[in-house]
Nucleic acid binder design. Structure first.
Length: 461
RNA sequence: GACCCUUUCAUCUAGUGGCCAAGGAUAUUGCGUUUUCAUCGCAAAAACAAAGGUUCAAAUCCUUUAGGGGUCGCCA
């Protein structure tokens, strides 16, 4: 059975990079009817925040991802790690190192000056003497000193790193608390993970974790290192260009299905397919089709996807969602008309809400440029005449098609083009030259409201 | 600086030695539809980082160079 995990450290909100790796892991588990587990990496006791955990769960909930079982908190598993540290110590696979921080700093500076990769030199590896006084030791694991550490990455292929590049890294701090690479390996093993999908900023941690796996005799899982998401300029993502809280996307009016569709195609592909329902993603996802190279974050496509999902969403569901964006038309008897007239004009729910308000709320002012164009010539007379025709119409006016008949009769009676009435009428009703179809607008507003708005604008001309 | 990863249109990508004078999508531009805007339809422009090899044949394999990213913590 496939078992994957998402293992964030609770230092802040969830951003799209994290959401994407979580998505990949989640899809892979769901596709294989396996388990997707959540683990909170909070071993650094000074940097924890419960809020951060809530933020992650809120984001998961919004996009509809769920994890199996209970979330695991590393901070509650210190006794387990301690046991393994003692075991390694006993077996001589780990040792106490009495090097002071100052000594370490000096060593690193020297190595860097020589143009080497900074790494611990193993001076206490076989230490048998009397420990220096006043130093609380750290515990280091014995890494291999020769050969290469090789593993097969599911995305990048065989990765080989010289053992000389991997030092005897610290597995327990001088205060006794365990460190990241140690606990990750233990938990990944104990949680029975078969596939670890994570960002390729962890690529260099993998050989270290393999050292732990081997020392403890654990089975090594499959690793998949997904390349980073960069900004449009190909640089590291910053808060300005995408590394914002996932929930910000909700505030900006994006649909979760659009965001997931966007993210799944960032680095992964299934031939030429662009649109994926969640079920399709689950069915088709395979980490072997993840791209090796990093991808650039670009909002255009997300916007396009979002408008696609808005256009294809049921009116009932849209209406419900719109309540959070300041528009409540759930009980409106023209609900379908309103959304059919506007949903192609809003790329986000925020824009859609604006479009709806544009119709539902009488214009407070009339766009200058539009007015200038629309209200020239005989516009005033034409509007007056149109109102008369509208009010004297004999058959009931209900559907957009009914209003269309009125418009048709009006232009033919007066031998004018649609534009002659369309432009002033539109500006009179909406305050702007652009917007939904007049037939729909009038059907939504009804005769009385149309007359009211036109009267008002006529009075200003 | 050292080590590791990576490099196809502006962007996301298809492509695993011949089907590629490189396909799709977004964005852009033009045309059409429309009373406006949007949607939609059609079309255009747009890329194998560079140089050397290997091969009958290379976007695909190898080497070097250049660009980008990551890592070098008693952070995760």
């Amino acid at each position: 059975m496939i078992r994957t995990r998402f293992a964030p450290s609770p230092t802040g909100y969830l951003h799209i990079g994290g959401l994407r790796t979580a998505l990949f892991s989640w899809l892979w588990a769901r596709k294989n009817k396996g388990k997707f587990l959540l683990r909170i990496e909070d071993t650094d006791l000074s940097r924890n925040s419960d809020k951060a955990v809530d933020a992650i769960l809120e984001a998961f909930n919004w996009v509809g991802m769920s994890y199996d079982g209970d979330a695991i908190f590393q901070s509650k598993r210190f006794d387990i790690y301690k046991k393994y540290i003692d075991k390694l110590l006993e077996e001589g696979k780990a040792y106490r190192c009495y090097m002071s921080r100052e000594e370490l700093d000096t060593l690193r500076a020297e190595q860097m000056a020589r143009g080497e990769r900074a790494r611990y030199d193993g001076r206490y590896r076989d230490f048998r003497g009397t420990p220096p006084e006043g130093i609380k030791p750290v515990i280091r694991i014995k890494a291999p000193q020769e050969g290469n550490i090789i593993f097969n990455d599911g995305i990048k292929g065989e990765i080989s790193i010289a053992s000389t590049e991997v030092d005897d890294f610290i597995i327990a701090r001088s205060d006794g608390t365990p460190t990241y690479n140690f606990v990750v390996a233990i938990d990944d093993a104990l949680m029975g993970l078969t596939d670890v999908i994570r960002g390729d900023d962890h690529l260099y941690n993998t050989p270290k974790q393999i050292v732990v796996y081997r020392a403890l005799g654990f089975k090594i899982p499959n690793f998949y290192h997904v390349a980073m998401i960069n900004n449009e300029q190909g640089k590291k993502l910053s808060k300005r260009d995408g590394a914002t809280d996932v929930m910000e996307y909700k505030n900006m009016g994006y649909l979760p299905e659009a965001l997931l569709n966007f993210l799944v195609r960032l680095g992964w592909s299934h031939g030429d397919q662009e649109i994926f329902t969640i079920d399709e993603m689950i069915e088709l996802f395979d980490p072997k089709n993840i791209n090796r190279s990093s991808s650039n974050y670009n909002l255009d496509k997300l916007l396009w996807l979002n408008s696609h999902y808005i256009k294809n969403m049921s009116n009932e569901k849209l209406a419900t969602l719109l309540k959070e964006y300041g528009v409540d038309i759930v009980e409106h008897n023209r609900l379908n008309l309103i959304l059919n007239a506007t949903k192609e004009r809003g790329k986000t729910l925020v824009e859609l809400a604006n479009q709806i308000n544009l119709i539902l709320k009488a214009p407070k002012e009339y766009d200058k440029k539009s007015s200038k164009r629309a209200f020239r010539g005989e516009a005033k007379e034409i509007l007056k005449k149109f109102i008369i025709l509208l009010q004297s119409w004999e058959t009931p006016l209900d559907a957009p098609a009914d209003y269309h008949k009125v418009l048709e009769k009006f232009v033919s009676d007066n031998s004018i083009g649609f534009g002659k009435i369309g432009q002033p009428l539109r500006v009179g009703l909406l305050g702007s030259m652009r917007g939904s179809g007049l037939d729909e607008i009038m059907a939504i507003l009804g005769v009385d409201e149309v007359v009211k708005r036109v009267d008002r604008v006529v009075a200003t001309l």
